[in-house]
């Protein structure tokens, strides 16, 4: 009986956070998309032959839904209120950067710098431990370098998630799978409050995926994609699951790395003239053969044969599932040491 009570105490907050995150995001998306359409905040779905106009910045619904569900987590973990505050403020700062980028165009060089501001609340509130645990090695001491790594981590996760938001459901699908791995890993290290935060994010992402999957009815935009990446980065630091989170985010990081390595600098999709992907007359997508086009994960997936948009997203989610399994194995290697 006591065991059942313990189980309930451990998993109930996460289950409730997931439900609240899902419900709030799901209910907020239709009104937010109506407002965006009304004010002309729409973007072209470039991977469709008829190029429909889709409401942008609907990631605001995800931001509000997940932020509100942290109140549920705070109700169960009152002693962790500073950590929850750090999570909320870090992710909201990055969401504001995303909103500014959509409305004013910040630029490819300034945006990653501004996203590092998301690390400031974590550093100022001192809610991190500069002793990350590594597989086969155990606890390490990185007192000086760890704060710098926090700045890098938030920028890398936020921007790499943003760079994979290229197809209908690609970001919500891949990041949902990565977040499942983070929920499991944080439970493995006994950080129930961070697992509940991750569950809230998972709920929001699943709700958004319903609207964003092929054919998309809404777009996340930078406000939602940068927020999601920063949330995953913050969860990794606060939950002390840095290496596992890095492994879970491998498809997003691979995609960003290939693009950067090929182009040789930070870039925005709109400023690249040689597109990595082209649309065939039958609506399928094909990899560009232009040698100057950036090499992205989607171009690598399409290198073998042209595919429909939702098939590319499926491949991406499969790769994320592999990374999620490796992330859990990584965390088990740390825990079992």
């Amino acid at each position: 009986m006591a065991g059942e009570a313990d189980l309930l105490e451990t998993y109930l907050p996460a289950a409730l956070a997931l439900i609240v995150g899902f419900a709030l995001t799901f209910l907020l998306i239709p009104p937010v998309s109506r407002v965006m359409r009304k004010y002309g905040i729409v973007g072209t779905d470039v991977h469709k032959l008829d190029r429909p106009l889709i409401p942008e910045m609907c990631g605001l619904a995800l931001v509000v839904g997940v932020t509100a569900s942290t109140l549920v987590v705070g109700f169960f973990y009152r002693e962790s209120v500073v950590r929850l505050l750090a999570f909320v403020s870090a992710t909201l700062i990055v969401a504001v950067v995303g909103a500014l980028d959509r409305l004013t165009t910040i630029g490819p060089r300034l945006k990653p710098i501004l996203t590092t501001l998301g690390a400031v609340p974590i550093l100022l509130l001192s809610v991190y431990s500069p002793r990350p645990s590594l597989p086969f090695i155990g606890v390490t001491r990185l007192t000086i370098i760890y704060p710098i790594l926090i700045l890098v981590a938030i920028a890398v996760t936020a921007n790499s998630a943003n760079m994979l938001d290229v197809f209908n459901g690609s970001l919500t699908g891949t990041c949902s799978v990565a977040t499942i791995a983070i929920v499991i890993c944080t439970f493995l290290v006994g950080r129930g409050e961070i697992a509940a935060l991750a569950a809230a994010l998972l709920g929001g992402l699943i709700a958004f995926h319903i609207y964003n999957r092929y054919p998309a009815k809404v777009f996340l935009s930078d406000v939602g994609s940068l927020y999601t990446g920063a949330a995953i980065g913050s969860l990794a630091i606060l939950g002390h699951v840095e290496v596992a989170a890095l492994t879970a985010m491998m498809p997003q990081i691979m995609n960003a790395f290939y693009g950067l390595a090929k182009v040789g600098r930070l870039y925005e999709r709109r400023e690249i003239s040689a597109r990595p992907i082209k649309i065939l007359p039958d609506g399928r997508l094909a990899a560009s053969r232009d040698p100057s086009a950036p090499i992205t994960l989607s171009r690598m997936i399409l290198a073998r044969s042209p595919l429909k948009e939702y098939e590319i997203t499926r491949h991406m989610v499969s790769l994320s599932s592999v990374s999620a399994i490796l992330a859990i194995i990584t965390q088990l290697l740390i825990v079992w040491r």
Partner: peptide, 26 residues
Amino acid sequence: RTTIGLTLIILFVWITMLASLVVIFA
């Protein structure tokens, strides 16, 4: 076959990342 090829790259990156961490820290 596409997923298998990219999965092998992910496995390579994961294994070499863990090996590098062991070399660097131990």
